[in-house]
Write a protein that binds this DNA or RNA. Structure first.
Length: 817
RNA sequence: GGGCAAGUGGCGGAACUGGCAGACGCGUAGGUCUCAAAAACCUAUGGGCUUUUGCCCGUGAGGGUUCGAUCCCCUCCUUGCCCACCA
């Protein structure tokens, strides 16, 4: 068997496709549009990895398939080019981030082209290009106008190694997502986007999209909507009260003390009246010093201090209760204060036990001496509400409180506003200035973009390098015109801001007047299929949905969900079954394997490894098996070429009712259905079965025309998977145009049906025999044949048949005694 | 602690969502070709019995529903991912 020359063939077709702009997405076309999108890569210095190849091959197969089905496909690529690694490299080596980033992009582009992906390269975008980030800044201004971007002083997560704040989503187990350094708390003035305003819509609209269920679940958990009540506890001797949020208003009678978060504003307010203020302040100071990890460590024993001199009143029964501060109560959730119901909340129970606070049972069903009873049940010790079940009691207690003006139904979310300030250089500058007279002044649209200056030093300082740039701050106030004391905001935006709208830019990537024209957006959007890693479940995917809703509300777009269908590719592990990493030395380099085995082999192998969404280990041996398959295809082309001499036969899909043509139709069906369902592995297996059969049959069939056209049909369906080899073979047989522009074959259902099947005979559910019969036989006909089989009569003779189960074309089961 | 996936040969994985478990590929063994090797091709390949026709066991473990369970239900174990003092 001869191997095909992949190096020559790959290159040849990549050049031709590029020159002819075969994959251009046509804004003017009458065909039905489909937008197939990959999550664009961060162009790291390491280059493309096998995971990129997996997801990009998947979308490429779908894109090529859809074009052949007559669709107008938008399949673009670009670069998520801002980010920390380039800047950290600049700090280490002194090379400007632009330089390293541009170099990495060139490398990524080269690598992506070497795999033969069918992108429309005319639409390439780069988030670090001023022509792009001008519009990132513009969107910021729109959010600012709408009151959705605001600045506030807040305790933030600070990574000392990256020298910047992090969004909550970027803190993993109290550590920086990127460098794994421990994150500390800092009070800083920062810019936020008000994503919490959209919490309900972000939940509700999940119903509209076809996304993997786990991803939806993760978003729901992240937004974390809880319904309950806001209840006011009056303070003894004051004319104001402490408001708490609870999901269990039914347990109100069991609230035996209140707990405030250490950051709660009330403490400052009541300072004068607190008897043990030193002790309290000491506690506050201590909890400030703890980092997120220490504070949220579940294993740790709860601590707290009673605020002496301050007492509250339980609005349900008028009982006087104590007030505490403790750092197990978080300022960021609810109202930053809780009513403690130790009998029915395990955290409160633990705390009450430690500090000898009263534990009062108000819901029957548990043993509160041993542990908190957290389930719902029948109320006791709850005055007029005793005897009700929790659900009824909830409503009644809320309306009772409402009458007295001491409470109402309330909702709380886990979701926090999105902190977008970053004290770094390599990002889009936040387009505002600070004027000593006018305060915060947004940069007017016509002044955009606010470009990154070059007179900066890259060193870890704890503030953005932009702060020290002279040229950057040469600006006068847009409102009053003064220039003395006027400075620009020197923080840049989180790179997730850049990627929250990039899918819109692809529709109109060179527009200098708008972020994208309404017309172009409406031609292509929303995205029909979006593919990328599951790690973006609560970051990018939530932010992009938020931006889409904001732009919808502002009237710039007419859809509310950006990505209609989402699929996640699985992780490709090293050959040792471990996660690929440089330190383990198990990283597969795409360049090397493409060089040695060819682009098509790598593409087909990555799809053949297993289900698209599963994690699976790399196997170079397995890949060689795929190469053998492609070599078989190539050899078949040589064999058939010889048979046809130099005659060019017109192509059409064979329709003859012979076994080989039936197998072809069956294979076409399998591949068609499998592509649509993202089951590329079984599609490839079907094609392997086909070529093995053709190999066996090729010398038994005399009609060369049928043979060649069966083979050419096969090449057409192979082409989305192995496009280079397919083009070469298509050309070899004098095929018109490109194989990637052929119509996808339409299989004939009747030819995909089996005419003979293996019919199974069971006795008491155990398989005892099978027989080859034509399809469609009736139970009587089957029974007649079955009774003649030795192994069946052996089991039936002298037995009583209680029941016969007949499944047409499949099996018959005799239940005997 | 909570939520969600998933557990099938020596390995990656198939199995129309209740109907022949192990497709396809890798690996392994034997064979053909060769002076020899590699490649390629052919045959075999879940385990255990059996001279053959055959029989028994087998989809993480145990139970259940069913004529029939990899698939549905219950309990448990293991692995992975996500969240986690969220009131």
């Amino acid at each position: 068997m001869k191997e095909y020359e992949h190096k020559k063939i790959d290159k040849k077709w990549q050049q031709i496709w590029e020159k002819e702009k075969v994959f251009k997405a046509d804004d003017e076309s009458d065909k039905e549009k489909v937008y197939v999108l990959d999550m664009f890569p961060y162009p790291s210095a390491d280059g493309l990895h096998t995971g990129h190849l997996l997801s990009y091959t998947g979308t490429d197969i779908v894109s090529r398939y859809l074009r052949m089905k007559g669709k107008n496909v938008l399949h673009p690529i670009g670069w998520d080019a801002f980010g920390l690694p380039a800047e950290n490299f600049a700090i280490k080596k002194g090379v400007h981030p632009r330089e390293t980033t541009w170099r990495s992009i060139d490398n990524f582009r080269r690598q992506i082209k070497s795999v033969g992906f069918s992108y429309d390269w005319d639409r390439e975008i780069n988030t670090a290009d001023p022509g792009y980030y001008k519009w990132t800044q513009w969107i910021f201004l729109k959010l600012y106008e709408k009151g959705l971007a605001y600045k506030k002083k807040a305790p933030v997560n600070w990574c000392d190694s990256c020298q910047t704040v992090l969004a909550r989503e970027q803190v993993i187990d109290g550590r920086c997502e990127r460098c794994k350094n421990q994150v500390i708390q800092k009070e800083l003035e920062q810019w936020f986007f008000k994503i919490t305003d959209y919490a309900d819509r972000l939940i509700k609209d999940l119903e509209k999209v076809d996304w993997p269920e786990p991803i939806k679940q993760m978003q729901l958990n992240w937004i974390g909507k809880s319904e309950g009540a806001l209840i006011k506890f009056p303070l003894q001797g004051f004319d104001f009260s402490v408001e708490v949020f609870t999901t269990r208003p039914d347990t109100l009678f069991g609230a035996t003390y209140l707990v405030l978060a250490p950051e709660h504003a009330l403490i400052e307010q009541l300072k004068e009246r607190i008897e043990n203020i030193d002790e309290v302040e000491n506690y506050i100071q201590k909890s400030k010093e703890k980092n997120e990890l220490e504070r949220t460590d579940l294993a740790k024993e709860k601590t707290g201090v009673e605020i002496k001199g301050i007492r509250a009143v339980n609005p349900a029964n008028g009982e006087e209760i104590s007030v505490w501060i403790a750092d197990y109560v978080l300022m960021g959730y609810g109202t930053g204060a809780i009513m403690a119901v130790p009998a029915h909340d395990s955290r409160d129970w633990e705390f009450a036990r430690k500090y000898n606070l009263p534990i009062k049972e108000v819901v029957k069903g548990g043993d509160i001496e041993k542990e908190a009873y957290i389930d719902k049940g029948i109320l006791v010790n709850s005055g007029e509400f005793s005897g009700l079940d929790s659900e009824q009691a909830k409503e009644k207690i809320i309306s009772h409180l409402k009458e007295k003006g001491l409470g109402e139904a309330g909702v709380s979310y886990r979701l926090r506003d999105w902190l977008i300030s970053r004290q770094r250089y390599w990002g889009a500058p936040i387009p505002v200035i600070y004027c000593p007279v006018c305060g915060i002044v947004p940069v007017p649209e016509e002044e955009l973009p606010v470009e990154l200056p070059d007179d900066v030093d890259f060193k870890p300082t704890g503030y953005s390098p932009l702060k020290d740039s002279k040229s950057f701050h040469k600006v006068s106030c847009y409102k009053c015109g003064r220039d003395e004391g006027v400075v620009r905001e020197s923080d840049t935006m989180d790179t997730f801001v850049d990627s929250s709208w990039y899918f819109l830019r692809y529709t109109d990537p060179r527009n200098s007047q708008e972020f994208a024209s309404k017309d172009k957006i409406s031609i292509w959007c929303p995205v029909d299929l979006y593919v990328g890693g599951a790690e973006h479940a609560v970051l990018h995917l939530l932010y992009a949905r938020f931006f889409t809703k904001v732009l919808y509300d502002l009237g710039y777009i007419d859809f509310e969900e950006p990505f209609l269908k989402l699929r996640n590719q699985g992780m490709i592990l090293g050959e040792d079954g471990q996660k690929m990493s440089k330190s383990r030395g198990n990283v597969i380099n795409p360049d090397e394997i493409i060089e040695v085995y060819g682009a098509d082999t790598v593409r087909v192998y990555e799809m053949f490894m297993g289900p698209f969404e599963d994690s699976k280990p790399w196997s170079t041996k397995g890949m060689i098996g795929v190469r053998r398959f492609l070599d078989k295809v190539w050899n078949m082309a040589q064999i058939l070429k010889k048979k046809t001499d130099s005659n060019v036969l017109p192509y059409s899909l064979p329709q003859e009712d012979i076994p080989l043509v039936r197998l072809l139709h069956k294979t076409v069906k399998k591949v068609t259905v499998d592509i649509e369902e993202f089951r590329f592995n079984t599609a490839i297996s079907a094609m392997m079965i086909f070529i093995n059969n053709l190999n066996r049959e090729v010398d038994n069939i005399d009609d060369v025309k049928i043979l060649v056209n069966v083979f050419r049909s096969f090449i057409i369906i192979l082409s989305p998977f192995a496009p280079h080899l397919s083009e070469e073979i298509w050309e070899m047989f004098g095929g018109e145009d490109f194989v990637c522009r052929q119509m996808w074959p339409i299989y004939r259902e009747d030819l995909t049906q089996e005419d003979e099947i293996e019919f199974v005979v069971q006795i008491n559910g155990k398989m005892r025999a099978s027989l080859r019969v034509p399809t469609g036989l009736s139970q009587e006909e089957i029974e007649e044949k079955v009774m003649q089989i030795n192994n069946v009569s052996k089991y039936l003779d002298g037995k009583q048949i209680n029941k016969k189960i007949f499944v047409p074309n499949r099996l018959i089961n005799f239940v005997v005694k």
